[in-house]
Amino acid sequence: MKFINIKDSRMPALGFGTYTLKGKNCEEGVEDAIRLGYRHIDTAEMYDNETEVGKGIKVSGISREELFITTKVWYTHLHKDALINAAHQSLQKLALDFVDLLLIHWPNDSVALEESLQAMMQLQEEGKVKHIGVSNFNRKMVEEARKIAPVVCNQVEYHPYLDQSKLLDTVHENDMFLTAYCPIAKGKVMDDEQLRAIGEKYNKTAAQICLKWHMLQKGVAAVPRSGNHERRKLNLDIFDFELTAEEIDQICGKQGDKRLINPAWAPEWN
């Protein structure tokens, strides 16, 4: 397993994403993921599944100290009181005393970033949050956030078809890491002939090759989601082989601007 060091913590670089998982499927999925070996679980207020994520954690029987839990505050709750209330509600639903990482889910230009980050730092001082970060921030916003608060992460869409090299540079320059959501491009990598060909060499799937590519990059984590036990198992089984420099270059060569997530409230990407 690859780890990312964050001050006094170590975050497993490969996490289990829970977006779209609901009800019993979510609870059982989180429990199964933890039993398979995942120790980093990613959820959010907007996912409407924090209660089930919490139940899955509890049923797994794994001690809290072994887990790294991330959740996010929705962009309509970024004023100080609303953010603090949202974070407390998330903790209550998760049945946890603290989360390891709290993120602003999307930026909101109608709320001063300083107000939101100061609220998050207050939660940090109170021990409700170990680390704070952002999600879906562009380069300028990352730099602004880093000047205000000790943000450690920017979680964004990142896969072989979306070039995030400039954003990665900015993240690294600011002593942060990047977490990739949609790391296998909503399953599109499965049909990629080149990735499948590389996979045949190592007896791996195209998705496994893609996730390995993420893991080989400095300061990059990934949180693939799967509602299927076998795929969850396969996604975790990527640490017994290496890609060649040529193969990495081939995958990097695919990068363009095929963004899959771009809602009306998204910032201007740069």
Rank of each mutant, 00 (worst) to 15 (best):
L83D: 10
N174V: 08
K188R: 15
L216P: 01
H172P: 00
K188H: 12
Q255V: 00
G15E: 05
D100S: 00
Q92V: 10
R146L: 07
D237N: 15
K130Y: 04
M190G: 01
V156F: 03
I104F: 05
M46N: 05
E31K: 07
L102C: 05
Q250D: 10
T170Y: 00
N235K: 06
R10F: 05
G37F: 01
W213S: 10
G133V: 00
M120V: 06
I261W: 15
Q250T: 14
E144D: 13
V99C: 02
D257P: 00
V134M: 06
Y19P: 00
K254I: 00
L14A: 09
P160W: 06
Y47D: 09
H159K: 05
N138L: 03
L83W: 13
G54A: 06
D240K: 08
D257N: 15
K58L: 03
D97M: 01
F98G: 01
L260M: 14
G256N: 12
L83M: 12
C182P: 13
E143L: 03
K147Q: 14
K147T: 13
D32W: 00
N49V: 10
R139G: 09
N262F: 03
R35Y: 00
I6F: 01
K166R: 14
G56E: 05
L236N: 10
G54Y: 02
V30E: 04
E144V: 09
G127R: 05
E50N: 06
V59E: 15
Y202R: 05
K80D: 04
P183V: 05
E66R: 04
P183C: 11
D81V: 09
A197L: 13
Q217W: 01
N154F: 02
P160A: 09
K147M: 11
V151G: 03
I62V: 14
E28Q: 13
H77V: 00
D32E: 14
C210S: 15
E193F: 06
E268I: 07
D163H: 00
L178C: 08
D169F: 00
Q89G: 09
H88Q: 13
L178G: 09
K2R: 14
G127S: 05
A44L: 08
L243A: 14
T179C: 06
L102D: 03
K188M: 12
D8T: 15
H159V: 02
N108K: 06
R146E: 01
L83T: 08
A145F: 03
R232K: 14
S116G: 07
G61R: 05
W74D: 15
A86N: 07
E157D: 06
L243T: 08
Q122L: 11
F98M: 03
Q194A: 15
E246Q: 12
H159P: 13
M190K: 15
N203S: 15
V189T: 14
G56M: 06
F68G: 06
D175L: 07
D81C: 02
E28F: 03
N235E: 07
L103S: 09
L162T: 01
E126W: 08
L113E: 09
K128M: 11
F68Y: 07
A245I: 11
G219Y: 04
L211D: 13
E52A: 09
D192K: 12
L178Q: 13
I238T: 13
G54E: 07
F98T: 03
D257V: 08
H79M: 10
E27C: 02
